[in-house]
Design a protein around this nucleic acid. Structure first.
Length: 453
RNA sequence: UGCUCAGUCGGAUAAUGAGUAGUCCGCCCGCCUGUUAAGCGGGAUGGUGCUGGUGCGAAUCCAGCCUGAGCAGCCA
């Protein structure tokens, strides 16, 4: 029976006859015995194995180089030396798979850029092991957060027939050979289809039946974006709440970010320690700050005023009716408020058709949550629930209402005020781990020109 | 997609005004009474992203390409 290293290291008393399996991180030889640092990915820490000369299997010790896989039977005993509480005195070791001498992972640190080129091996590094353990736990935290609040998990389709928001390049899905645009009506679905860029519109239909729902799944954008925070394939979380206004939407978004930060601090402490030490020395402090302090809320017009009066030279102009640029968002969250900021009520001309028009006739109920270091992590809105107004919005944005007949039906049959938001899971992970590049928080990044693994 | 920068052994890096491409880690051998990315001594292998150009001679200069990074747009 195999024992995971995390369980062995958490022992409260010495244990006879354990079996562990893992990969050698390093070997240190002394006269008459050797130390092996063994890691099986179950936790950040390695298990120190002591192998005396003459231990069955020790004749293979010379081949137990960094990267080799082994089985070790032994007794878990208190370590007589500083550095670790427990160590395993081997009674038998077995070499499972040797690592060739050119094993690219060395004991010393590597750059994330190099590790990206060996995406199949990088989970064996301390950093990426920690990142992907954290990713797994946070995925659970996302479900817990919503399930605790009676949200229903909805699997919205990955293949979709509508380029719903009318924005964003989409990946075409087809079974046709040759020119796929010739006769889309002969294609598999009888119409042009794409990989989804958002489950929101479908999510709204379920919110207008089950009240509170969320989606959590892969999302695709064919944008030729080359930045540290864009990927062509990423995981998005989209809650949608019936009988909810912008106020409730902002409250949920803020509560969500706080809950995720709290969860990371409590449940990912060991891995967070690595991030705090080697990736971002201010991480723990920032996460605690986010948990403890209320988010600042500021209307778009006020944000514009703050930026105008800041007396700071921006590369891009600050003017009502223009989008906030990354530099503006960063100024607000990192310099002016020094805390997460929720900006709301944006001019209608820079936001999509489905957002609810405010009484001023100029702004819509949009909200963006900005966090230090990342910028926009949440984008959401109260939806336009009035049929006439929604049709008017579509005209304003030059969309054809007939393409959205089922979406409009929601406003015909028992319409309700409702609201929701979209949150990029990878951006959340960047915020929680301090990792600066989205390609380093997703197992196999899909970016322009990159689908090797 | 635009602007900027960068590509040197398996990894991290050095090099002159163009003149034998050096070092550390790793690997191999030996030593070391318990090590902590162990330490000490010795050794071998191995590299200038690609294509072309200028030169007696190119890692170095020039052109194009490829790849990566940073910033920006699009956004989550």
């Amino acid at each position: 029976m195999r024992t995971l290293i995390k369980h062995a290291l958490a022992a409260t008393e010495p244990t006879e006859s354990l079996t562990v399996k893992g990969w050698v991180r390093t070997r240190r030889d002394s006269k008459g015995f050797s130390f092996l640092e063994l890691n099986d990915g179950s936790c950040l820490a390695n298990l120190q194995v002591v192998v005396d000369a003459g231990t069955p299997g020790s004749e293979h010790l010379p081949h137990l180089t960094t990267g080799a896989s082994v089985t070790v039977d032994g007794n878990l005993v208190p370590s007589p030396a500083a550095g670790q509480k427990w160590e395993l005195r081997a009674t038998r070791i077995e070499l499972i798979g040797q690592a060739e001498a050119n094993y690219p992972l060395q004991k010393k640190g590597h750059t994330p850029e190099f590790l990206r080129t060996i995406a199949h091996l990088r989970p064996r590094s301390n950093l990426f092991g920690a990142v992907f353990r954290t990713r797994s736990r946070l995925a659970l935290a996302v479900h817990q957060f919503f399930q605790d609040r009676d949200f229903v998990y909805v699997h919205t389709p990955i293949i979709t027939g509508s380029d719903c928001e009318g924005a964003g390049e989409m990946f075409r899905v087809t079974a046709l050979k040759g020119n796929i645009d010739d006769k889309p009506q002969t294609d598999f679905f009888g119409r042009p289809t794409y990989l989804t860029v958002s489950g929101q519109l479908e999510g709204e239909t379920f919110a207008c039946a089950l009240s509170n729902i969320y989606t959590f799944g892969p999302t695709f954008r064919a944008e030729n974006s080359n930045t540290a925070r864009h990927a062509a394939e990423f995981w998005m979380i989209e809650p949608e709440m019936a009988f909810c206004d912008l106020e409730g939407d902002m409250a949920l978004g803020e509560e969500f970010i706080k809950a995720m930060a709290r969860f990371a601090l409590e449940k990912c402490a060991e891995d967070l320690g690595l991030f705090n030490k080697f990736v971002d020395k201010g991480l723990n402090e920032r996460l605690k700050f986010v948990v403890e302090r209320p988010f600042v809320r500021v209307p778009y017009t006020e944000a514009i005023e703050i930026l105008t009066k800041a007396g700071k030279k921006f590369e891009f102009p600050v003017e009502y009716g223009l989008n906030l640029q990354s530099e503006h968002e960063r100024f607000l969250t990192e310099e002016h408020f020094k805390s997460p900021v929720t900006v709301f009520n944006y001019p209608r001309e820079i936001k999509p058709f489905y957002m609810r028009l405010n009484d001023d006739g100029k702004t819509v109920t949009a909200m963006d949550v900005l966090v230090p270091g990342i910028g926009e992590v949440i984008g959401g809105a109260q939806r336009e629930e009035r049929l006439d107004q929604l049709q008017e919005n579509m005209k304003y944005h030059k969309l054809k209402p007939e393409d959205y007949w089922w979406y409009l039906d929601l406003r015909r049959y028992g319409t309700v005020p409702h609201a929701g938001f979209g949150l990029g899971f990878e951006r959340l992970l960047m915020f929680l781990t301090g990792v600066q590049n989205i390609r380093d928080v997703i197992p196999f990044a899909r970016t322009p020109g990159n689908a090797e693994f």
